[in-house]
Amino acid sequence: MRLPYLTAIAPLCAVPLSAPSASAQTAGPASPDLDRDIVTVGVGAGFMSDYEGAKHHSFSPVPGAIGTVGGHDFAIIGNRASFNLIRRPDGPAWAIQAGPLIAVNFNRTSRSNIDDPQVRALPKRDLTIEAGGYLGISKTGMLTSRHDMLTLSVSYRHDIFGVHDSAIVTPNLQYFTPLSRKIAVAAFVSADHVGNGYMASYFNITPADSRASGLPAYHGRGGWKNWTLGAAGTVSLSGDLLHGWKLVGAATYSRLLGDAAASPVVRDVGTANQWLGAIGVAYTF
């Protein structure tokens, strides 16, 4: 399975798939939909670059499951999972979000998935797990209605297997709004700050790597790796976002920055402009 960095899509997909606040569009104060547990499972096709910084794209399956159980939100989207330890308050209100976060990094773990022959000649990287947590604050009833949501958060995760042995810090601003009981949309902006080890593993080229690949040797340092803009939406096929089948989709544009953009795997044979997308179906219980 190729899921190198679907963490860019995950912040978008997590809200529109279930859209619990959308029930209040037509439900009365006594509606059980406002308090019940809700779980959505889905599968789709993701269109993503072969490695971080590549020009070539291909399709990969993207599984997902999200929901709210006992007032706690959870999300499993592609290669990333999170759980909110703080119960969501009822109705329009400020809310604190905090909990564990884990991501599986598949970037350059298989040469067979890389189209460019020079990058394919570079050493492949072992699969690794990045674990950490996130902290955020959100407000419902913020802009367009009592049911939209604006969320500001920051996440921290660190490689626990020693592949790149560094941290990734991601501030994120996300806005979600239901347009009706059948349709919901979201948008976000984020950025990634990485350590020296991340840069060395995925963007630097040693003299030995240079001889094997023909790419020039390169040594960059950690810092702000990229910024990302994205949008997502869901359309209920059953007429209700809280029940039955729906179509879901998301797309992001990410711009690599600084030493990451200057790496030969990006500058010479790739591109700093990174596009990701996913489309699929889901079912809400």
Rank of each mutant, 00 (worst) to 15 (best):
V154D: 09
T151A: 06
G214W: 14
D148G: 06
G133D: 10
F161W: 05
T128K: 08
I205W: 05
M199V: 14
D192V: 11
S166P: 03
H147Y: 12
Y156M: 02
L135P: 09
A184Q: 08
L135G: 12
T144S: 12
T206V: 15
V163Q: 04
R181K: 14
A191M: 13
N172I: 09
I183K: 02
G132S: 12
H193F: 15
L179N: 01
A187V: 09
G223V: 15
I129C: 15
D159Y: 00
H193C: 12
G132Y: 11
A212T: 14
A186P: 02
V163I: 14
A131N: 04
S155M: 04
G162F: 02
T140N: 02
D192E: 08
T144I: 11
G162T: 00
D165V: 06
R157C: 00
Y156V: 05
P207H: 13
V194R: 05
R157Y: 07
Y218L: 08
S210G: 12
G197M: 01
I183M: 05
T151R: 11
V163H: 01
Y218E: 06
D165C: 10
S180M: 07
V154C: 05
H219Q: 15
N204Q: 08
S155Y: 06
L215Y: 10
T170F: 04
K124C: 03
G195W: 03
A200D: 07
D126S: 10
H147C: 09
F176Q: 02
G141F: 02
D126Q: 11
